[in-house]
């Protein structure tokens, strides 16, 4: 692999945030190169929204710090897709045009037209999916260099999800923006995102280039056994009546003899394995 020179986008160091009764984020440290499209994945309550809100500048962390590129223009679309209920999408865009120092009306309006959003109906009368599109149009119109999206796909049907991701990727391919997007829809991320941030209970379990992370692991499948036939750290295992599965961290594709087989690890395998290992509370 030739190394691609990437400039730093977000540098996060020891970030922590607690609420009155709980810790939402604990000692988070990671680097996200500029221009990456990162999926922020984790169970409910893992701290995804807290992390995005801190990065957006709307919430002050209790510990640690983060730095963005100089002059970064941040757009944050919160989970509730907040748009004024009594305003129409057309007026929401007019408002956004005045509130943002940088504004591209054509792009914002094109986004709404592409998805057939009625420009003159009050936002309160739009569906959840349509309100999402209004919030995304405002974000796109502000020409962000860092786009933070909290569950952008949650209210969208499968066709709209595919189209929204495709168009978002086109927008960021044009602008070179960095994207951090929280989502539960792990099965649809392959080829869409190139970076992973995996959170559990406020702690970062894994982060990095998606291909590199997955390539460093294998799924070893075979007859029921106590131990994996492959050397390396076992991150997760599962034992059925006649079968055992081990997710093993290993730098090279290992050799196993029949009846054992080694399979590449999909993003879904990886995420589910790491999250279920933390849920059991038996991580070493």
């Amino acid at each position: 692999m030739t190394a691609v020179v990437e400039t730093a986008g977000i540098a996060v160091r020891g970030l922590g945030k607690g609420y009155r009764s709980s810790v939402a984020l604990r000692d988070c440290t990671f680097d996200l190169p500029a221009g990456r499209v990162a999926a922020l994945v984790g169970a409910n309550g893992a701290g995804k929204t807290t992390l995005l809100t801190v990065l957006s500048g709307l919430l002050r962390p209790d510990a640690g710090e983060f730095t963005l590129r100089p002059g970064e223009r941040v757009a944050f679309v919160a989970q509730e897709k907040p748009v004024y209920k009594h305003l129409t999408p057309r007026v929401v865009l007019q408002l956004a045009a005045r509130l943002n120092l940088v504004w591209d009306q054509a792009r914002a309006q094109a986004w709404l037209e592409r998805f057939d959003i009625p420009l003159d109906r009050r936002c309160g009368q739009l569906s959840g999916g349509q309100r999402t599109q209004v919030a995304l149009a405002v974000a796109i119109g502000s020409r962000p260099t860092l786009l933070l999206l909290d569950e952008p796909l949650a209210d969208l049907d499968p066709l709209a999800r595919t189209e929204v991701m495709r168009d978002l990727l086109s927008e960021v391919a044009d602008s070179g923006a960095t994207v951090v997007m929280s989502t539960h829809i792990v099965t649809e991320l392959s080829g869409v995102v190139d970076h992973l941030l995996l959170l559990a209970h406020g702690t970062l379990l894994a982060d990095g280039d998606l291909d590199e992370l997955l390539a460093a692991h294998v799924m070893v499948v075979g007859p029921r056994a106590q131990e994996s036939p492959v050397r390396g750290e076992v991150l997760w295992d599962k034992h059925l009546d006649g079968q055992s599965l081990f997710l093993v961290r290993t730098p090279t594709t290992p050799v196993v003899s029949a009846p054992w087989v080694v399979r590449p690890v999909s993003l879904e395998d990886y995420v589910l394995a790491l999250l279920s290992a933390t849920r059991k509370g038996d991580v070493a």
Partner: peptide, 11 residues
Amino acid sequence: VVATSGVNANT
């Protein structure tokens, strides 16, 4: 390719 296939530009 990004616009037609919805694949990430870096990919």
